[in-house]
């Protein structure tokens, strides 16, 4: 049984941070350069945070941690996010 979900699992927590739906945006992997909707990433929810990885090369694209009353968000694994405004 796969232990990951698709990138739509990020929608709830990212909607607390961004006004636009980031899961509908196209993101470019900082490792392999694959450009795809964030919703196509592989999200591992059974961990101390949410970890989204590139569906092509497993590179960590997004990390979300609720650290007590703080939310720590890293998008460092994405070279770019292409949002429709």
């Amino acid at each position: 049984m796969p232990n990951h979900l698709d990138g739509n699992a990020l929608a709830g927590v990212l909607s607390d941070v961004f006004t636009m739906d980031v899961t509908a945006a196209r993101g470019r992997c900082g490792s392999c350069g694959r450009t795809a909707p964030v919703a196509e990433a592989m999200v591992y929810p059974d961990a101390p945070g949410l970890v989204a990885r590139c569906a092509s090369c497993d590179h960590v694209l997004v990390v979300v941690v609720t650290a007590g009353e703080r939310l720590v968000l890293s998008l460092a694994g994405l070279d770019a996010i292409d949002l429709r405004v």
């Binding site: 979900l5 709830g12 927590v13 607390d16 929810p45 059974d46 945070g49």
Partner: peptide, 8 residues
């Protein structure tokens, strides 16, 4: 805060 992780 909503958080999509499974509880134990």
């Amino acid at each position: 805060m909503p958080f999509a992780t499974r509880g134990f």
